[in-house]
Design a protein around this nucleic acid. Structure first.
Length: 486
RNA sequence: GGCCCCAUCGUUUAGUCGGUUAGGACACGGCCCUUUCAAGGCCGGAAUACGGGUUCGAGUCCCGUUGGGGUCACCA
């Protein structure tokens, strides 16, 4: 069997949204699973829509996600160029070939005629409005005369007038459509440039693409693609149309609505590995219950035939859960390095960063959660609600908290071992001596040190993180504050 | 509107030759653990869009209805 070759062919029109990224992933996996070739082709034929820097975003996104391409604009390859705008010369020759084979024809209808035609069709109550094939059977001499005279023209594909046109899709099976439904679509525009549909077929053939993986918005135009392959006598690729990724039940995920792009997610502190893993499962499922996949496992288990037929709604909650899982499975050191910039953006106080991160890891779903969780280290809220000290389970309130903190303070003052265990061992035994539950004694400590009810780790963990001086200072302040109230 | 496609818990999915207590994950609720909050462990509620067929038997096959998506450019 011939070597599998797949391509990802984005238009450089802005950010990469997750639906695009998923298509790229599926194309990448299809190639890698078969030890094939993954190709990146930039489709920039619509110069008006090109956005500066968009190509770099495509490069960076794919690289960050580890989807390396074997052939592409920057790495070259034997089938280049890989930027469509640099391939413009070749398309017209192919279109002319089709004209000679009687599968396409020159059309001289101008915009005005087309517009009038459209109006007439509407007046006649037609809702489809196809081109009326006015130039389809022009005498050869007339065509040559008008060409020689320099009349503007387009080249149109000659569709069959009757019968059924079909094509096979790996996901959807055989799809059939009445030939009469098909318009004689334009292949070469009056400016000599190819339309997307035409360029795509020619490029895919010339680049030896064996599996065309793309969004199913192309499902309807695939019969036309097939006809083109047949007209040229080229071998057809395997079509794999993916259903769209939805924002909700009614609308597709789109950049225009400001929906999450890959870049946005990264900015919010999602990991590319988690994003990829989530996207893998959004519209595809393997045999078995496995949900977490390393890149190698994805490649090994991948089978494009298991892609779903129906649209899938992008669920940020589930992505969040994946992200939390990826974070939780990291080593403490790995997480510390990842979290460091987020923490240091709000914490200048010297602290035990490693201990803090160890406590933060199971509490962090996305990296942007971090700053607000550790803000109290530099900026302890002075006016926190004393009601925080009330806890039903431990039967604490402002007055018991005062008693607890007064008991803890001397123990902390005397303690020299300011490690996590050292601080805990200095405080915890007091509970037994006093005949109270550990929580009764230590719950207030966390609040005294942070001014908040939820902290990364227990009270003694926070103490160990922020150091002895700050701990003593805050406990004393809390005692004063409580004394003022009780 | 024509044509094409799709339809299982709130979401994402399993279910591939018709026979399942319709399974997993996220989310949700409860319990356990516990120096807060998490994490972790255990348990629970939650779905075959509707209506007809075929069949001893339908989530699975057929038809219809409804709902949704896509597409109908000298855009990609």
């Amino acid at each position: 069997m011939a070597q599998v070759r797949t391509r990802f062919a984005p238009s450089p029109t802005g950010y990469m949204h997750v639906g695009n990224l998923r298509t790229a992933l599926y194309a990448y996996l299809t190639a890698r699973h078969e030890n094939g070739v993954f190709i990146l082709r930039i489709e920039d034929t619509d110069q008006a829509r090109i956005v500066d820097g968009a190509v770099d975003i495509i490069y960076n996104t794919l690289r960050e996600c580890g989807m390396t391409w074997d052939e592409g604009p920057d790495v070259g390859g034997d089938y280049g160029p890989y930027v469509q705008s640099e391939r413009m010369g070749i398309f017209k020759d192919y279109a002319v070939q089709l004209v000679e084979k009687g599968k396409a024809y020159y059309c001289f209808c101008d915009a005005e005629r087309l517009e009038n035609l459209h109006k007439e069709q509407i007046a006649a109550g037609e809702t489809v409005g196809h081109y009326d094939r006015h130039c389809r059977d022009l005498p050869k001499e007339e065509v040559e005369r008008r060409l020689a005279a320099g009349e503007p023209y387009v080249i149109r594909q000659k569709m069959p007038t009757e019968g059924i046109v079909s094509f096979d899709d790996l996901i959807y099976g055989r799809i059939e459509v009445e030939a009469a439904e098909l318009e004689d679509q334009i292949l070469i525009k009056s400016d000599g440039m190819p339309t997307y549909n035409f360029a795509n077929v020619v490029d895919d053939h010339l680049m030896g693409i064996t599996h065309v993986i793309r969004g199913n918005e192309y499902l309807s135009s695939s019969p036309k693609y097939n006809l083109l392959y047949e007209a040229f006598g080229w071998e057809k690729p395997i079509y794999i149309h993916c259903p769209p990724v939805m924002k909700d039940a009614h609308s597709k995920l789109s950049k225009r609505n400001g929906d999450a792009s890959y870049q946005d997610l990264i900015k919010q502190g999602y990991l590319s590995s988690a994003i990829l893993n989530y996207l893998l499962l959004l519209g595809w499922s393997p045999k078995g219950d496995q949900e977490v996949f390393s890149r190698e496992e994805m490649i090994e288990k991948w089978n494009p035939a298991w892609i779903n037929k129906s649209p899938a709604i992008f669920d940020i909650q589930k992505l969040r859960a994946f992200n939390a899982g990826y974070i939780n499975r990291m080593s403490d050191d790995e997480f510390t390095e990842l979290a460091r910039p987020w923490i240091e953006s709000v914490v200048k106080t010297p602290i035990d960063l490693k201990l803090l991160c160890m406590n933060l890891k199971p509490r962090c779903e996305i990296l942007s959660d971090l700053p607000e969780r550790v803000m109290f280290i530099d900026n302890m809220p002075e006016d926190y609600d004393l009601a925080f000290y009330r806890n039903k389970k431990f039967k604490t309130d402002e007055s018991t908290a005062l008693t607890a903190l007064k008991a803890i303070l001397p123990a902390l003052e005397a303690n020299e071992d300011w490690t996590r265990e050292g601080v805990y061992n200095a405080c915890a035994p007091l509970a037994q001596e006093m005949g109270v539950k550990g929580g009764w004694l230590l719950y207030p400590l966390g609040i005294a040190l942070s001014g908040q009810q939820a902290t990364p780790g227990g009270g003694t963990d926070v103490a160990a993180v922020i150091g002895k001086d700050l701990t003593l200072e805050r406990v004393r302040k809390a005692i004063a504050k409580l004394q003022g109230a009780c």
